[in-house]
Nucleic acid binder design. Structure first.
Lengths: 328, 328
DNA sequence: CTGAAAGCGCTTACAG
DNA sequence: CTGAAAGCGCTTACAG
């Protein structure tokens, strides 16, 4: 195996001290142009790359961000993942990927993140126990909950403004003449589903309208099954607000199966604006989550906290956009 | 900030040497049960966790696997990603996630992997230049190409047996009475698309049948557009073999749009068996890639190579399964 | 601006 | 089995 070559080797070849080599690779350190050139030439010749581990050991800082994801099966998340990865890459950070099936991030995953002394953590769609959260705080590791609000805690959280989205959707449907509507929820304990419903319900109430609520689970199968049983019960509303797109597709497929005309007999509105929403088979009216903006805000906050830890708690809500297609 | 506590602190509290603390956490090292207990108690009390960076620095080994993915937008890949993550987690490895848009993995990404001295690398759906590949070889970092064969090189590669799959699909369609068939390819330069076609074409030739070939790109939009233009040209075959499911869905939607009956007028077969293939809107007949098995083989190989580097080159092909649904 | 030296937190021969 | 000591490859005061 090619022996790993280190700063000392480069120093020798360049005829400078090891400290100087280090300075060339350490941002912010001062080196003369002359020295820099000699070092870079020698490094190039030897194929030198600074060892990240030695670096992290001495600075007790890393260029690694822990990204914890739940529910990667929703087509919304691959987008989120790639955007985070490329945003962080631009700033010189790498992504340690952690996948969890559980609603709450697990102890062993937290240990991994702590062992690698990650510079920051993004948690999408999951929550964590207070104990665990505190342990990040104790280490001054900044943390963002992405697309999830924690009720109990004082953490930074970046979401789409779900409340406003729910309101806007209600107003749109009312304007379009719907009077009996239904909400198909995601998992009941998620802040996203609750807030979308809250905004929706608020506006309906202002207009003295009520709505049926059907609890589902943010999956295609859930949307399909829920819609099917509604159709079979004979209580079809004139419009569905569905908590995410993938469920809305299930709903549309159930309606298609039962030959219910969309939007003539029933309107359907989703949430997320995933790629598939624009497919000719669906042409789903939906609410676009501004992923790019959300990711940007998350990254900015994390970088600022990495530079200087404050532990600021805040819920940052980014406004989304209504996308009208053919299901309304 | 909570000062990081190290092995020395634990040693002091436990009344043993720092070496002994280290031995407790180093697998394979010998410590008496008595010492172990004292150390673990002290560690628990202080909240000690060994520093991975110091560890990696001294052993020049890491517990990090670099996972390079291309084309995460295909619903096939989230599955692959989560399976890899959980498989590696079981063996104590963490995943450094790298996303690339380019067909060939880029220099900066390679640098990242080398800087972190990853224990092994999995590359899905992308290729790499020979230079880059050699640089992994020089460092004795084992590498697996997942779902991709490299023609030029001597690397380990884990794929579905695409050739056999193509053959089986051709045989099935012939048995079902199709005589004029079409192949809708993925990106032309990918081994997966080429081999699926090769197996397919081989069997047709044996039966003195030919097929039309339409070059597409592994995306929904590609499948949709390709099918649309075929329909409009009036040269509809009696069966389509489509190089992956997501394109096949585009094909089905195009057929639906043009009111072409499936499977009565035309049969459609996809590849991958992604979740959506079983959706009621599609019910796509397809070829299941044995992801679980493929991931397992990849992980096993990597672990073996990490334990003892041999640099074995091989193409491991795992057999898939035909899944018959309603599009044939 | 540059170099010699200390030290980050571990593992690992080497004695005992 | 255990401890003292060297050393992994860096960064960073400290002098000069």
């Amino acid at each position: 195996m090619k022996p790993t070559i280190n700063a000392k080797d480069v120093a020798k070849l360049a005829g400078v001290s090891q400290s100087s080599v280090s300075r060339v690779y350490f941002e912010g350190a001062k080196v003369s142009e002359r020295t820099r050139k000699k070092v870079l030439a020698a490094a190039e010749e030897l194929g030198y790359r600074p060892n990240e581990f030695a670096r992290s050991l001495i600075t007790s800082r890393t260029k690694i961000i822990g990204l914890v994801m739940k529910g990667v099966e929703n087509p919304f998340y691959p987008q989120v993942l790639t955007q985070f990865t490329s945003s962080f890459k631009k700033c010189g950070y790498s992504v340690l990927f952690v996948h969890t099936n559980n609603d709450e991030i697990q102890k062993e995953d937290v240990e991994t993140l702590l062992n690698y002394n990650v510079a920051g953590v993004v948690i999408t769609d999951a929550t964590m126990s207070l104990t665990v959260a505190e342990s990040f705080k104790a280490h001054h590791i900044p943390l963002v909950f992405f697309n999830r609000k924690l009720n109990l805690s004082d953490f930074y959280s970046v979401c789409c403004n779900n409340l406003n989205a729910g309101r806007a959707i209600a107003e749109y449907l009312i304007t379009e003449g719907s009077t009996d509507m239904a909400y198909i929820s995601g998992n009941e304990n998620t802040s996203t589903s609750l807030e979308r419903e809250k905004g929706f319900g608020e506006v309906l109430e202002q207009h003295n309208l009520s709505y049926a609520k059907h609890i589902s689970d943010y999956t295609y199968e859930g949307g399909y099954g829920t819609a099917l049983s509604i159709i079979e019960s004979g209580k079809l509303p004139s419009a569905f607000f569905v908590a995410n797109d993938i469920m809305a597709m299930g709903v549309l497929d159930a309606l298609r199966k039962k030959a219910v005309q969309v939007p003539e007999q029933v309107k359907v509105i989703g949430f997320d604006n995933i790629d598939m929403a624009s497919w000719p088979a669906y042409e789903l009216t939906t609410w676009e989550q501004p992923i790019e903006k959300m990711v940007e805000e998350t990254v900015n906050y994390l970088l600022a906290e990495i530079a200087e830890y404050t532990g600021t708690a805040k819920v940052l809500e980014v406004e989304g956009t209504f996308i009208e297609r053919k299901t309304t």
